[in-house]
Design a protein around this nucleic acid. Structure first.
Ligand SMILES: [Mn+2]
Ligand SMILES: [Mn+2]
Ligand SMILES: [Zn+2]
Ligand SMILES: [Zn+2]
Lengths: 180, 180
DNA sequence: GCGCCGATGATAGTAATTATCACTTGAGAA
DNA sequence: TTCTCAAGTGATAATTACTATCATCGGCGC
């Protein structure tokens, strides 16, 4: 198992291809193709540094100085919902702490944000040798498995009340489209 | 490579053992052993659901109704710093978006929060069959490698100015202790 | 027991994100 | 092409998670 850092320059062709079909994909997703959306996806595809909303907004404003930061936030979430982008930080609502220091990994329900510990026999061993990332001194890793827990999967199928967590529920609807 | 969900009941003995040496570990870390800290680590070790600060606070207040939420926030960060807890959400400052939909993973610099794409040949294949987590319907996974980038590693060794990012820099000091 | 410095509680402040709402515009219908 | 209108946007207020401040308290080494 070998690790290699993805070269930035590989992204140029990829970005062009994605841009070419973006409008079509928007319409397929029932979304209007607005200049803001085009500018935002273009900025995102042009970046290799996993930017935050504010960075995207700054880039977009170089050509469209009128664009609102709120629109950038909204649009980025929309892009995730239709599968045109992903959020690196799946659980950034609020910090989640763990008292378990044993090496282990996590299954995260994208709907209710439940987190459960999992152990994956052999993964530690397999990774330990592989993580010689040039340009980085790694000292830890963790695998996050995105999932729907049984409760939430049930709710999707039938009708029913949604589970706990203020803010999680709000975001849940958005995240829905992606798994399905 | 087999995945299994960690049973909650396995934690009881572990928690007791950790509590037994907590005071000593605090002093070793140069920290005073306060009733708040004891109550907070106890609540954290008693939870298997990766609670947020507010949940810990609620639990702690059942016995110590006076405890401040600010103290809980501070203490949880302190526990992470001395290695008595970990944060599941390493990058929850602000949402980070990714235009790259190809399956890949991330190396994260815990100091400057730079994120780089990495591909790990064989990992997808190795995991694909293994992720039959009972009680969850998985549909994706991502490996996060915690590291220090060359810039930040250099800064640690010699003296020098710290890199970009408002809020990242603030938290950096805290995260520091863990890797070192 | 004494005293000091770190820890805490109360509270104000900050920053990211989201909600609201009046106005604009993309996109299908006529 | 023009019309219609729901969806999208911008300005801004609100929310929320967290952090800073600071007066006071209390572990802990003496
Ligand atoms: Mn865990
Ligand atoms: Mn990426
Ligand atoms: Zn769930
Ligand atoms: Zn760095």
């Amino acid at each position: 198992m070998e690790l290699r850092i993805v070269k930035d320059n590989r992204r140029a062709a990829y970005a062009r291809a994605r841009m070419a079909e973006f409008a079509a994909r928007c319409r397929r997703g029932g979304l209007a193709v607005t200049p803001q959306r085009l500018a935002i996806i273009e900025a995102l595809l042009g970046a290799t540094d996993h930017p935050r909303a504010e960075a995207i907004c700054a880039e977009v404003r170089r050509r469209h100085p009128h664009v609102s930061l709120a629109t950038v936030h909204r649009t980025l979430e929309t892009l995730c919902r239709i599968g045109e982008a992903r959020k690196v930080t799946t659980l950034h609502d609020s910090a989640r702490y763990d008292g378990n220091l044993e090496p282990h990994h996590h299954v995260v329900c994208v709907r209710c944000r439940r987190i459960r510990d999992v152990e994956i026999a052999g993964l530690e061993r397999a990774l330990a040798g592989a993580l010689a990332a040039p340009g980085f001194k790694p000292f830890g890793w963790s695998l996050e498995i995105q999932a729907l827990c049984d409760d939430c999967a049930g709710l999707d199928a039938g009708a029913g009340r949604a589970p706990k967590s203020r803010r999680a529920r709000k975001r849940a609807a958005q995240v829905q489209a992606n798994p399905a």
